[in-house]
Each structure stands twice: as structure tokens, then as C-alpha cells.
Amino acid sequence: MVADAEKYRAEDEKVAQRIQARNSLESYAYNLRNTLQDEKVAGRIDVDDKRKLEDVIKEAITWFENNQEAETEEYEYKQKSVEETANPIMMKLFWSIEKVD
């Protein structure tokens, strides 16, 4: 009985980690999309950067919708890939806002 409980606990933890990774990717993609739709941001971001972000966000959301049962590592990898594109652009945007304000 104790062995079964340990087995199920480990499985539950694995499922919880997968759900957390999935939620993290989903939240990140939608938050980026919402940020881009903000009028204050839209006017301050370079057109090419905005296009890059829109493309990577759209691709991430499509991937997410088509891979609901992906493994934790797959969700984490996808999020890191989105972050590699988004972070430099968002930092540039942040610094442009800081200079203006």
C-alpha cells in the first residue's frame, strides 16, 4: 500500500510539473500578445520587431493548441525558444521607454 502511494505521488508530481509548464507557456504567449496589442507599446516598438514577435507568438499558440499532451521538457523548450526571440525585443522596448520617461 505504501509503495502504491509513493508510486502515485511521483506520478502526480510529474503531472503537476507538466501542467505548470503548459500553463507557463500559455500565459507567457498570451501576455506577450496582449502587450503587443497595448496602444502604448504598439507605437514604441519597431515594425520589424513587432512582426517577429507576432510570428513567434502565433507559432507558439498554434504549437500549444496542437500539443496539449506534450511533455514538461517540450513545453519548457518551446517557452525558451519564444523567450530567445522576445526577450531582446522587450528589453529594447523597455530601454526606449526608460529613455523617454
Score class of each variant (00 low, 15 high):
residue 2 V to M: 11
residue 3 A to G: 08
residue 3 A to L: 11
residue 5 A to T: 08
residue 5 A to F: 06
residue 7 K to W: 11
residue 9 R to H: 12
residue 10 A to K: 14
residue 10 A to E: 15
residue 12 D to S: 10
residue 12 D to P: 00
residue 15 V to W: 13
residue 16 A to N: 07
residue 18 R to C: 06
residue 18 R to V: 05
residue 18 R to T: 11
residue 18 R to E: 15
residue 19 I to E: 15
residue 19 I to M: 10
residue 20 Q to G: 09
residue 21 A to G: 02
residue 22 R to K: 15
residue 23 N to C: 10
residue 24 S to L: 11
residue 26 E to L: 08
residue 27 S to W: 11
residue 29 A to Y: 02
residue 30 Y to A: 02
residue 31 N to M: 05
residue 32 L to Q: 01
residue 33 R to Q: 15
residue 34 N to H: 09
residue 34 N to D: 15
residue 34 N to T: 09
residue 35 T to N: 09
residue 35 T to M: 12
residue 37 Q to S: 12
residue 37 Q to R: 15
residue 38 D to M: 03
residue 38 D to H: 04
residue 39 E to G: 05
residue 41 V to A: 04
residue 41 V to S: 01
residue 42 A to W: 03
residue 43 G to Y: 10
residue 44 R to T: 04
residue 46 D to L: 08
residue 47 V to Q: 12
residue 50 K to S: 10
residue 52 K to S: 15
residue 53 L to D: 00
residue 53 L to I: 09
residue 54 E to I: 03
residue 54 E to F: 02
residue 57 I to Y: 00
residue 57 I to K: 00
residue 57 I to Q: 02
residue 58 K to D: 14
residue 59 E to D: 15
residue 59 E to V: 05
residue 61 I to L: 09
residue 63 W to S: 06
residue 64 F to G: 01
residue 67 N to W: 07
residue 67 N to P: 03
residue 68 Q to V: 05
residue 69 E to S: 10
residue 69 E to F: 06
residue 71 E to T: 05
residue 71 E to N: 08
residue 72 T to A: 06
residue 76 E to Q: 14
residue 76 E to F: 03
residue 76 E to I: 07
residue 76 E to Y: 02
residue 78 K to L: 04
residue 78 K to H: 06
residue 78 K to I: 02
residue 78 K to Q: 12
residue 79 Q to F: 01
residue 79 Q to I: 04
residue 79 Q to S: 04
residue 79 Q to K: 13
residue 82 V to T: 00
residue 86 A to I: 03
residue 88 P to R: 07
residue 91 M to Q: 14
residue 91 M to I: 11
residue 93 L to I: 07
residue 93 L to S: 04
residue 95 W to C: 07
residue 96 S to H: 12
residue 97 I to V: 13
residue 97 I to A: 10
residue 97 I to F: 06
residue 98 E to G: 00
residue 99 K to G: 03
residue 99 K to N: 14
residue 100 V to I: 08
residue 100 V to A: 14
